[in-house]
Amino acid sequence: MKPTIEIEYCPKCGWMLRAAYMAQELLTTFTDDIHGILLVPSAINGRYTISIDQTVIFDRKREGRFPEIKELKQLARDIINPEKSLGHSDKKQ
């Protein structure tokens, strides 16, 4: 079964649009590789975590920041389809 990505965000912090944007980017990149993406409003203030099949790949509180899209795609790819090329997102700066 294809994996599901979950983005849990704090609605009180106004992070729904950020979560929707990241979901759109992930859906565009991993169209054939994932089952879908869930956007989950958190009951815990300040939460912003991204998980794949319940394995957290990014936690805003732990990292002290939000992920960059390039970084998020690489983290997701490494779990979902390690052989997948991300094109320009794979190039080192």
Rank of each mutant, 00 (worst) to 15 (best):
K70I: 04
E71R: 06
K92Q: 07
Q24M: 01
E25N: 04
V56T: 15
C13D: 11
S42A: 02
L86R: 04
G36L: 08
Y48I: 01
S85G: 10
R60K: 15
T4E: 14
D59F: 01
D90V: 01
E68A: 15
C10W: 00
I7Q: 09
K12A: 15
T29R: 07
A19E: 04
P82V: 03
K12I: 08
E83S: 12
T31N: 07
R47S: 11
R62L: 04
G36T: 02
E71G: 01
F58V: 05
F30A: 06
D90Q: 03
T29E: 15
Q24W: 00
K84P: 03
I34L: 12
K2W: 03
A23V: 02
I69A: 06
K84Q: 13
Y9C: 05
G36W: 11
I37Q: 03
E68S: 13
E83K: 11
P41M: 12
I37F: 06
I37C: 04
L17N: 11
L39F: 08
M22Q: 13
Q24I: 00
D59K: 02
P3N: 07
G64I: 14
I5R: 03
I52F: 07
Q54V: 08
D59M: 00
V56E: 12
H88S: 11
E68P: 00
R47F: 04
K73D: 01
D90L: 06
F66A: 01
M22H: 08
E63M: 09
L75N: 02
Y21N: 11
E8D: 12
E68C: 09
P41D: 13
L27P: 00
R77C: 12
N81W: 00
C10G: 10
